[in-house]
Design a protein around this nucleic acid. Structure first.
Lengths: 205, 205
DNA sequence: TACATAAGTTAACACTGTTAACCTATGCGT
DNA sequence: ACGCATAGGTTAACAGTGTTAACTTATGTA
């Protein structure tokens, strides 16, 4: 009994927290608001989470897990390594666009904006890197990709993509530039950066 | 008299704000702290700034201006377009590393973390894009760069770089990966993405 | 029946951004 | 020289925040 109730409240808190985040944004994300939503005192949150950051870390963990699952799926479906990279990139972009506020908090671990993301959870989060890493290795083996350090390249790959989505979501984009075109162009460039360079692949579209 | 005093206080506020930001980080950046530092009441800040966001926007503006000036300088010094791109990239990286907290707030305009960055200030901020844009055009003319939309490419260029610095600064990097190596590798990939593809440039290092 | 423990509450502290009301000195017109 | 408007600044207060300590209340066990 108390077992399920315990889990219930913790789950309720996380659920309410997600609601508040999605509806009000990170800026107006407050423990008291969350507590109010499930009719519980704000201090009860401290029975299940160390503090506000800890709760947010849990939200981050969930979002990362969902993203990684989707990535794994699309990577499995595509066949050529290049096609896989493209599919991964577009899936990532879609996730960011469809889950803007969750995407935002995923990238909130920055140095002093929040307590360091705990390293146990960190390992899980690395799955996305591993996926790209192995796709790149696949591409190297097939002679399509020039890359002697796939693990590092996996990081540069996601980093570049994140940068692209970061300017898209922050609406920094020049109004004369079409968003989807920008994304397409950027992904093309990013993937081009990893391809082997042969005369046959001269850009000509 | 009152003229110089006015400016003085406004400048004092901005100066103190910068101090607080640099020493305490954005998270602990508070108006009252700033006011305390220059022995003035917190509400005085409202005589010169609309609100907290407005003050931060001013800080952002200053930081962007400094960065843009440095960029313009290095772009002028290098000669080949490719060398210019590299110089710009490395200057950007250096700025981010040397001014982490200022760099961070520059990229804080995200959708709901803060009031929208005002569009008058926005135009100034675009200088960096114009620099890259013209360098790319130069490269196209010289037959070194394949790019039919230099303005858009300028955005993808900075976006990718920002992504790279974002993972570096947030210390998301796998401990097995050397930071400088990561930066070098990433910049190489980014620039490679814009080069024309010829058999001669096959990677072989 | 007595007691330990768990689950939750209330009250309080020390902050935060922001607004309204007040003070006070300086400069100007008469 | 006098009165007054105004700029530049203040204090007090509001509504909200994360977090801690102390209290209550119920549940299960010896």
């Amino acid at each position: 009994m108390s077992e399920t109730k315990e889990l219930n409240l913790k789950e309720q808190i996380v659920g309410a927290a997600r609601n508040v985040l999605l509806s009000e944004g990170y800026r107006n994300f407050s423990l008291r608001k969350i507590a109010r939503e499930i009719d519980v005192s704000a201090t009860s949150i401290y029975l299940h989470f160390e503090n506000k950051d800890d709760l947010i870390h849990t939200l981050m963990e969930q979002a990362i897990e969902r993203l990684n699952n989707q990535l794994q799926q699309v990577a499995a479906e595509a066949d050529s390594p290049i096609a896989k990279l493209e599919a991964l990139a577009y899936e990532y972009v879609q996730f960011a666009l469809n889950n803007q506020r969750e995407y935002q908090i995923i990238h909130l671990t920055s140095s002093d904006e929040m307590t360091r993301y705990p390293k146990e959870k960190f390992r899980k989060a690395r799955k996305g890197y591993e996926i790209v890493s192995s796709v790149l290795q696949e591409g190297v083996n097939a002679g399509l990709i020039a890359e002697e350090k796939p693990r590092m390249a996996a990081y540069t790959f996601w980093a570049q993509l994140h940068g692209v989505m970061s300017v898209v979501l922050s609406k920094r984009l020049d109004t004369r530039i079409n968003q989807q075109e920008f994304i397409d162009e950027a992904i093309e460039h990013i993937i081009d950066g990893y391809k082997v360079r042969t005369a046959l692949q001269t850009k000509n579209k």
